[in-house]
Write a protein that binds this DNA or RNA. Structure first.
Length: 316
DNA sequence: TTGTGTTTTATTGCCTCC
DNA sequence: GGAGGCAATAAAACACAA
């Protein structure tokens, strides 16, 4: 029968699901007998009989076995207490208190840590044979070596997670900055387009007033109300004008740009066209290109092709 | 000195693998 | 079913400001 009289040496650690179960109430000795055997046979600071002081439990198949030494390398667990750890004997509260006074967690020395770090760099997994070897070399228990490696792996994982998080955050910030700046640029360009279209219509209206001529039957300008002028723009078209770029075809309304009827100079036209060319394709979503050569087309607009995708202008 | 936050050591329970 | 790894957690040890 597993005894509850044996106490794990560790000062730390509580039960996740049973906080009431304290060290003094835990049961049995180490289930890693080799650890004790090894230590008792090889460690000058851990004598054979002392292995009996490596107490722990077997709850859930786990083992606890840690010895405590003071800073001088002496055992903190008094050998005179050995008789108190008879597996058949219960530990009373006084003994429990006594043990808690003496069983304090001991930090590893800097040299031990340095040694372990070096070995961790070589391989962060611990084979049993290596565990015993390391324990022997720095005078710790194999169980302590295993615990140290386990905690070290956990720290490494945490560090990696933190690093990954920071990298992702930086990338996100960069992308967001790009997005924001593109958004601003888009708004500026949209405003520019609106301004240009309004200027054009205004010019057309001015021209109509000056010449006092009725608009041609197909001309849209004359039928555009002031309200419409404020919100819409380019209309019908029939001619496909070649652009310098093979990917761009501009379509201008013949009624707008017929040389003999338009007071837009060729230079103005060219400027307008160039301005349009400078606008990115995303400025004109949701508007399809139509072949404006159809004479029956009632509605007219500028359209242009960008890399085989159709874009048109627009309703703002 | 003391309160508080962080780090380190160790335990526990669960899970996977053999 | 045992061994070992991992996540969660406890608690001692430590650092440090007030």
């Amino acid at each position: 029968m597993a005894s509850r009289s044996l106490v794990c040496g560790a000062g730390g650690g509580g039960s996740k699901n049973n906080p009431v179960l304290l060290q003094s109430e835990r049961v049995s000795c180490s289930t890693e007998p080799l650890d004790s055997v090894f230590i008792s046979g090889s460690s000058p600071s851990f004598l054979g009989s002392r292995s009996m002081f490596s107490f722990g439990n077997v709850t859930g198949g786990k083992r606890s076995m840690v010895s405590f030494e003071d800073s001088n390398g002496g055992k903190r667990t008094d050998g005179s207490l050995f008789h108190l750890f008879d597996p058949e004997e219960n530990i009373d509260d006084e003994l429990d208190e006594y043990l808690h006074q003496h069983e304090k967690k001991r930090r590893l020395t800097p040299s031990q840590i340095q040694f372990l770090e070096k070995n961790f760099e070589l391989d962060n997994k611990l084979e049993p044979e290596r565990k015993f070897q390391l324990a022997k070399e720095i005078d710790l228990q194999p169980r302590q070596i295993a615990i140290w490696f386990q905690n070290r792996r956990a720290r490494l994982k945490t560090n990696h997670l933190e690093k990954d998080y920071k990298e992702l955050q930086a990338r996100y910030n960069n992308l967001k900055a790009d997005y924001d700046s593109i958004l601003m640029e888009k708004e500026k360009l949209q405003a520019k387009v609106l301004q240009m279209s309004e200027n054009l219509l205004f010019t057309q209206k001015e021209k109509g007033n000056l010449e006092s001529q009725p608009p041609p039957p197909n001309a849209v300008v004359g039928s555009v109300s002031d309200d419409e002028v404020s919100k819409v723009s380019m209309l019908a078209c029939s001619d496909v004008l070649d652009s310098d770029s093979p990917q761009y075809n501009y379509v201008f309304s013949s009624s707008y740009f017929e040389p003999e009827q338009s007071d837009l100079s060729h230079n103005e036209e060219d400027n307008f066209r160039r301005n349009l060319e400078s606008l990115p394709a995303y400025m004109f979503p949701n508007i399809g290109y139509t072949d404006c050569s159809e004479p029956s087309a009632d509605s007219c607009y500028y359209g242009f092709l960008v890399e085989d995708q159709s874009f048109g202008i627009w309703s703002l």
